[in-house]
Nucleic acid binder design. Structure first.
Length: 270
DNA sequence: CAGGTCTCCTGCTAGC
DNA sequence: TGCTAGCAGGAGACCT
C-alpha cells in the first residue's frame, strides 16, 4: 500500500524510465480512474504532451507536462509498469500511456487510484493539491502549528495523523510506527497532546519516513506483483503487524481505531 | 465545523 | 474440497 515513501520510490524509478518521453496516445480501460476532466477531454489534452519532470506532493505523483500536470494517486494498490506494445494487457491495467518505443501502464487491482489532468497554472491552487498540509520536512511544521490544528480535535491522535490536510504522507502503517517511537498511546485525544509530545511526533515522522524512503518503502501484501518495486522497510517495522514489543517484550495490542488496524504497546505508549 | 458512517473495489482467508 | 461472508484500507461523499 503506497504511502509517501513508496510514492517517492516510484517517482525516482519513473524519472529514470520516462523522462522526456512524449505521450503519443492514451488508452483508458477503466474510466473511473480519471477523476477530472472527462475521459474524452483527458485523452485529447494529454496527447503529444512530453513528460518534463516528475514530482511528488504528499502521496500524489505529479507528472509535469508541457501544459498540464497529470496527478496520480496510487491509493491502495496502484503501480506503474513499463511494457512493450505487444505484452498482454491484463485485466488490472487500466490506463496505458503510449510512447515511441514502449508504454507505461497504470495497474490497480482494487481500482481505488485516481488521476487528474490540470492546467499547469492551476494545479497547486485547486483540488486536490490545495487541500494538503505540510510535508514532514517543511520548516513551518512545528508544535505551534500542530497545537493550532489539533485544538478542536477530540479524535484519537492515530486518526488525526492520517489527516492529509494537516501533515501529508503518513498512512496507516507509519502512523503506528510514529506513535510507537513517540511513546504515545494511539487513543490519546489529539487536543490533549503536550508540546513535547507534538515535537516528538514531528521528529519521529521524519525518522520513520526517511528510513522508509532509504529502503524503498514497505511491501506488506504477499500478492504484490513481482514486476513491482519491492520495498524493504517492512523488515524494520517495530510495532505494526508485530506480536511482541521490541522494547519491553510484552504482547502488542491490536485494535481498530476509526476502522483502521492499529498496533501498539500498552506499557510503552501512554 | 467536527465527526460518524458509508462507499468504492478485489483478493484473500476464516469458517462451515 | 468447495463455497461464501467478511475483511482490508485512503479518501471523499453524505449526514447529523
Amino acid at each position: 500500500m503506497p504511502e509517501l515513501p513508496e510514492v517517492e520510490t516510484v517517482k525516482e524509478t519513473l524519472k529514470k524510465q520516462i523522462l522526456n518521453q512524449k505521450i503519443l496516445d492514451v488508452v483508458v480501460n477503466y474510466p473511473n480512474i480519471i477523476e477530472k476532466p472527462s475521459v474524452e477531454e483527458f485523452i485529447k489534452k494529454i496527447k503529444n504532451q512530453t513528460i518534463i519532470d516528475i514530482k511528488r506532493r504528499g502521496k500524489w505523483l505529479l507528472f509535469e507536462l508541457n501544459d498540464y500536470y497529470l496527478l496520480s494517486h496510487l491509493r491502495m494498490e496502484g503501480k506503474y509498469y513499463i511494457k512493450n506494445f505487444d505484452d498482454e494487457v491484463t485485466k488490472h491495467q487500466h490506463v496505458i500511456f503510449k510512447f515511441k518505443d514502449f508504454e507505461l501502464r497504470y495497474n490497480d487491482t482494487r481500482k481505488f487510484g485516481r488521476m487528474y489532468l490540470l492546467d499547469k497554472k492551476d494545479a497547486y491552487n485547486t483540488k486536490p493539491l490545495n487541500e494538503l498540509g505540510y510535508e514532514p520536512w517543511d520548516s513551518k511544521l512545528n508544535s505551534d502549528y500542530l497545537k493550532e490544528k489539533y485544538k478542536n480535535k477530540k479524535l484519537p491522535i492515530k486518526t488525526v495523523l492520517l489527516d492529509q490536510s494537516i501533515i501529508v504522507g503518513i498512512g496507516n502503517i507509519y502512523a503506528d510506527e510514529v506513535l510507537y517511537l513517540s511513546k504515545i498511546n494511539p487513543y490519546k485525544k489529539a487536543n490533549t497532546l503536550t508540546n513535547e509530545e507534538l515535537n516528538n511526533i514531528i521528529k519521529n515522522t521524519k525518522v520513520v519516513l526517511e528510513k522508509a524512503i532509504q529502503l524503498g518503502g514497505t511491501t506488506i501484501k504477499s500478492y504484490t506483483s513481482s514486476e513491482g518495486v519491492h520495498g524493504k522497510f517492512q523488515n524494520e517495522l517495530l510495532v505494526h503487524t508485530k506480536e511482541e514489543c521490541p522494547n519491553c517484550h510484552k504482547k502488542i495490542t491490536k485494535v481498530k481505531i476509526n476502522g483502521r488496524g492499529t498496533y501498539y504497546c500498552e506499557d510503552c505508549q501512554k
